[in-house]
Write a protein that binds this DNA or RNA. Structure first.
Lengths: 329, 329
DNA sequence: ATGAAAGCGCTAACAG
DNA sequence: CTGTTAGCGCTTTCAT
């Protein structure tokens, strides 16, 4: 593969001039620019990207940490991030953490090795202090997940309001025994959702029942299991607030299979408003999260961070979420 | 950020020795190794990855070209690729082509700029000659999509058999008016699927009807439209072979909405066997593609290519596909 | 507007 | 087993 020196020789010019053409510098005469371009074509030249990165200390690459690619919510988040990245000539290094603390640390170190210009976190596995330590090495932006700090920018939804809205809706439909499904680790997002659920209960004078909290629930199969477990209870819940549409779908499918009617016997409300929410029968009532939009806002903020154009309002961007009422409640 | 020179000075050794420790060279005494490790810790040292790449001419990065991240089939493919990549200390540069020829070319050029060690193609947008020209610059592996050549390794399914199986199933259920839905560009995969559909028709003496071929059909909404369009036909099909579970789901949902019974009035068969196939009511009969497995086979082959350990059998790996009969037929 | 020259930080011969 | 040295290919002052 030809190098910049070969091009310079071919064009009868210096490497510096070739570099100027590559980088669209202004002070190059049209004549020489043409010469360089011809030489590049003739030699089928492409600049070595590692050399460019080493020299310029810029990689034009952003690391995106997501738990799992196959979760549609994160796929849409990524889609949003990618759209803005592509528009601005950035590349994405997709890093699956699989909800693992070690892996998250491993990927955060890409900042130290200058493999990426910045990192977007869509979930948080380690405690905040651990992560905060990395901000010295490059910009970090929180996307979807968040924490109670003002150090790094975040793009987020009012999760407390989301679950509050959903729970209130369930209560207004006459439910008093409302189950709540969540993941494992109590991230700030998880905590806030939980708080919203509790807040609604309290407001309507319904006692909080620990038996109605289902933990480590992530996907469709987990949802099915929740429903089965609930049926084995002495005093089972009549409504379920699920942490995702996948989980909600699992609950609905299993309920139907067990001969229960939805929403007659059991009401279910999801989170996300993914395509699956409209596919399952009955269609899910759910809290719509504008996943793509969160993604592209986050990438916009990341670019601003890199170019030192961050403004105070960029530090905490809130996007609206919305209760979509369908037929599962 | 500290450099290798700083570490060398701190440890009172040469840069070469530090490098040897970083790269786990064998001939380093335990004593010096310890000294180096201490120095690295003390200085919070991380090797600059661009420098390593420039010097070693290896990036440990594979470019994966996929049409869209939000299509679950590709998400699972990517998941499979990522599993093997992670296990072997490779990183993935995820490149969305959005079915665009220019973008595909753009990403293929990462091979020329030595930004990636190899490229996995999960779809093909340009003609094969154009792509073949890039094999000089690094290994290319075809994953899912394929072409009639023996130049680059491919991991694939017998698509012709897949659609043949599905169409035969439909015919045996008594259908004679069978519609077929496909995307836009006639890739080899698309052609083969089409051929399998035709083959089944021919075998059962059913004439091929061009009106029954629906083109540019990709997702759930497209599927709905297909059903509506078909209903407007003078002599509408009674069965649909869809190119994906998304499309099949759209057809089923819209059919129900239009008051048709599935499979009574209209039978539908999908492709992929994604989670959604079991969620929609009635559950989809579909051709199961082992997406994750295709992905990890492809990455295995890629690694072998890079390490020059490719064997003849690696050039064309076939994985089985399977007809899953549920309730939409 | 163009060129000369100095590295960016690292690895890999080679020598000892 | 360890050190010296020569680049990998590029960008960017600093001159002119």
């Amino acid at each position: 593969m030809a190098t910049i020196a070969d091009v310079a020789k071919e064009a009868g010019l210096s490497r510096a001039t070739v570099s100027r053409v590559i980088n669209n510098y202004q002070y190059v005469s049209d004549e020489k620019r043409f010469l360089v371009q011809e030489a590049m074509k003739a030699l089928n030249y492409f600049p070595n990207s590692s050399a460019q990165k080493l020299r310029s200390q810029r990689t034009q690459t952003i690391g995106v940490l997501i738990p799992v690619l196959t979760n549609p919510f994160f796929a849409y988040l990524l889609e949003g991030i990618d759209r803005i990245a592509t528009d601005n000539a950035y590349q994405l290094l997709v890093c699956q953490t699989k909800y693992d603390q070690q892996k998250e640390i491993h990927f955060l170190n890409y900042l130290k090795s200058k493999q990426v210009d910045g990192i977007i976190l869509t979930s948080i596995e380690n405690n905040w202090e651990t992560i905060a330590a990395y901000t010295t090495y490059g910009p970090i932006v929180l996307c979807n997940e968040y924490s109670e700090q003002t150090l790094v920018p975040m793009v987020r939804l009012n999760q407390l309001e989301g679950s509050y809205l959903g729970t209130c809706h369930l209560i207004r439909q006459g439910h008093r025994k409302i189950a709540y499904c969540r993941g494992g680790y109590m991230s700030q997002l998880t905590k806030d959702r939980h708080a919203g659920y509790k807040k609604a209960l309290t407001e309507f004078g319904i006692p909080y029942n620990n038996d109605f909290i289902f933990k480590n629930v992530y996907d469709l199969e987990d949802g099915k299991k929740v429903l089965r477990d609930s049926l084995a209870m002495e005093n089972p819940p009549t409504a379920f607030f699920a942490g995702s549409d996948q989980v909600a779908t699992g609950i609905v499918k299993e309920a139907m299979k067990q001969g229960k009617s939805v929403p007659g016997d059991i009401a279910v409300i999801g989170f996300d408003d993914q395509p699956i929410a409209s596919v399952v029968e009955p269609a899910l009532t759910t809290i719509k999260q504008p996943a793509e939009e969160i993604g592209y806002k986050a990438m916009e903020v990341m670019i601003k961070s890199i170019e030192s154009e961050l403004e105070p309002n960029d530090m905490d961007i809130h996007l609206p979420l919305q209760l979509i009422v369908r037929h599962s409640t």
